[in-house]
Amino acid sequence: MTRIVKYIFYDILRTRFILLYTAFLLVSTIALFQLDSDPGKVVMSLLNIVLMVAPLISIVFATIHFYNSYEFIELMLAQPVNRSVIFLSEYMAVAVSLCLAFIAGVGIPMLFYGAGSTGFTLLFCGVVLTLVFTSLAFLASVLTRDKAKAIGIALLFWFYFSLIYDGLLLWVVYTFSDYPLEKVTISLIALNPVDLARIIMLLRLDISALMGYTGAFYKDFLGSNAGAIASVGILLVWVIAPLAWARQIFSKKDL
């Protein structure tokens, strides 16, 4: 497996896209730190990168990469190599390179300017969302043979989790605003990794004081050990479930 990962990794580095992505993150992060002297506020601005940019880049890049690797995958499948190994190697290589790009691009300036433990949480959320959206990209890729269609599905995933889902959530809150919704919404939040990461981040920052009763309830729940473990667990499910499903489809896919 490591041999195959190595070859894919090498192939990804050749395209230079990952280097561009790293450079983009580096420049944006450094610019934010330069513009604002308060690290807490920079972390807040970086939250947008974590919640929007990292998932979008991850899912689009991973989908395109998967299609560009079709020849390689085909070649490997004619060799005495396990299908799952090929699939997971592809995932590993893509996910690791995207995560490294994110950690280098956002983490190094943070280390340099000092962002503390909230910075660490931010990095964690960014890495997890990268993994989640890479998984979703692989799912989109095995759902169809058509590259354009797959990119469409990938973008739809991104759009759904970044925007459409929140619209539905707002609708639920509006429709049932006469009922106590805290418990319901916290489970609804768990159904969207972007929202979950966002809430975890908001609660880490002291601006959660502005979130009133709902904020206090979430802080109580997610701040407890059980809540923290549960939220990390749910995020991991979001990484594993789409990937496992995609692997299942891939193992029966004709090439």
Partner: peptide
């Protein structure tokens, strides 16, 4: 195996 159309990593 020798495929009809050999497709290989282009790079």
């Amino acid at each position: 195996y020798m495929p009809q159309i050999g497709r290989y990593p282009e790079n």
